[in-house]
C-alpha cells in the first residue's frame, strides 16, 4: 500500500508539474486578455518539433534554450499581427482565430516534418535510472523534468513578484481596465505575456516531446486538459493553476489504483444488483480506475456549475 501511495504521489507530482508548465501561460493569457487560446497545445507541439530539429543540428542542450526563445518570438508575432487585429471583433472571433491557427500549425508541421513521428530521443546523459524504490526505477530524465518545472515555477514567481513588469502583469490579471487607465502600455504587456506563455508551452514541448511522443497529432492528443487547469485553478490566479495542476495530477494517478465500480458500491450498501440490466448496464461495470483521464472534465463541469471562481480565482469571468 505504501508503495502504491509513494509512486502515485511521485507520478502525480511529475504529471502535475508538466500540466502546470502548459497551463501557467494559458492562465496568464486567459486572465489578462480573456482569450481561450486553443492554439496553446500547438505551441507545445512546435516546441517539441523545434527541439527535435535543433537537437539534430547542435544537440539537446542548446535546443532547451533556443526552442522556447523561438516560440516567444512566434507567440509575440501572432499576438501583434493576429490577435490584436481580431480583438475588435470580440472574444468569439479571437478564440476562433486561435482555432484556425491550431489547424494551420498542424498542417505546417505535417508539411515540413511529414506525417510520421520524428525520432526525438531523450539525451543519452539522462537515459539512466536516478534511484530505485521497491524495484521500480525513477529515471534521471524524470528527475530532470521535475527540476526544469521547478526552475520555471521559481523564475516565473520571481519575475511576477520582483520586477516592475511582473507587478504590472499581476495588476492586469485582476484589474485589466485599471492598469490601462494608469497609463501602462497594456497591448505591449499582452504581447509579452502571450509570447511568454507560448515560450513556456514550448519549453514543456521540449522536455515532454521526447518523454512522450512527438508527432503531428500531439497537440490534438493533449486536448483541452489545459483548460481544465485554468478553470479549476481559477481566473487570474497562478497559485490556483499550480494547485490545480498538482491536484489533477494526483487525482488522475490515484484514480487508476481504485478498482471499484458502481455495482461494488451497491453491494457495499447491501443492495441487490438486480436492476443492472438494459441500456445502462455498462454504467455499473465501469471502475473508477478506467475513468482516471476523464475525471478532470467532470471536475471542470462541476466546478463551473457550483464554483465558477475556481479554487483560488479572484473573479468569475
Amino acid at each position: 500500500m505504501i508503495e502504491f501511495i509513494v509512486f502515485s504521489l511521485l507520478n502525480g507530482l511529475l504529471y502535475g508539474m508538466l500540466l502546470f508548465m502548459l497551463s501557467s501561460g494559458l492562465t496568464l493569457i486567459f486572465s489578462m486578455m480573456g482569450v481561450l487560446n486553443f492554439a496553446h497545445a500547438s505551441f507545445y507541439m512546435l516546441g517539441a518539433y523545434f527541439a527535435y530539429q535543433i537537437s539534430t543540428w547542435v544537440g539537446f542542450w542548446p535546443a532547451l534554450i533556443i526552442a522556447p526563445l523561438l516560440l516567444f518570438i512566434i507567440g509575440a508575432v501572432v499576438e501583434r499581427f493576429g490577435l490584436r487585429t481580431v480583438h475588435k471583433y470580440g472574444h468569439v472571433a479571437e478564440l476562433l482565430f486561435t482555432v484556425g491557427l491550431a489547424f494551420l500549425i498542424e498542417e505546417a508541421v505535417i508539411l515540413i516534418w511529414g506525417r510520421s513521428a520524428p525520432d526525438y530521443r531523450i539525451p543519452d546523459l539522462l537515459d539512466a535510472p536516478l534511484f530505485t524504490l521497491w524495484a521500480t526505477n525513477f529515471s534521471m530524465y524524470r528527475g530532470f523534468m521535475l527540476l526544469v518545472a521547478v526552475c520555471m515555477f521559481a523564475a516565473l514567481y520571481l519575475v511576477l513578484t520582483r520586477t516592475r513588469i511582473g507587478l504590472i502583469i499581476q495588476a492586469a490579471l485582476t484589474h485589466p481596465e485599471g492598469v490601462s487607465a494608469l497609463g501602462h502600455n497594456v497591448p505591449g504587456v499582452f504581447m509579452l505575456v502571450f509570447g511568454g506563455g507560448c515560450a513556456m508551452a514550448g519549453l514543456a514541448g521540449v522536455i515532454g516531446g521526447n518523454y512522450f511522443i512527438t508527432d503531428p497529432g500531439m497537440a490534438r492528443m493533449l486536448g483541452p486538459i489545459v483548460f481544465v487547469v485554468v478553470v479549476v485553478g481559477g481566473m487570474g490566479s497562478l497559485t490556483g493553476a499550480f494547485v490545480a495542476s498538482l491536484l489533477l495530477g494526483a487525482i488522475q494517478t490515484f484514480a487508476i489504483g481504485l478498482e471499484y465500480s458502481l455495482s461494488d458500491l451497491f453491494r457495499l450498501l447491501g443492495m441487490s444488483p438486480g436492476f443492472q440490466g438494459g441500456i445502462l448496464k455498462d454504467l455499473f461495470r465501469i471502475q473508477i480506475a478506467h475513468t482516471g483521464p476523464i475525471l478532470p472534465y467532470l471536475i471542470m463541469v462541476l466546478m463551473l456549475i457550483f464554483r465558477p471562481k475556481g479554487l483560488m480565482g479572484t473573479r468569475e469571468t
Partner: peptide, 15 residues
C-alpha cells in the same frame, strides 16, 4: 482498461 487515446502518462499503470 484505460480510456482510448486519453492517457498521456502511463507511469501509474506501470506501477
Amino acid at each position: 482498461f484505460h480510456p482510448l487515446g486519453k492517457v498521456k502518462d502511463f507511469s501509474p499503470y506501470i506501477s
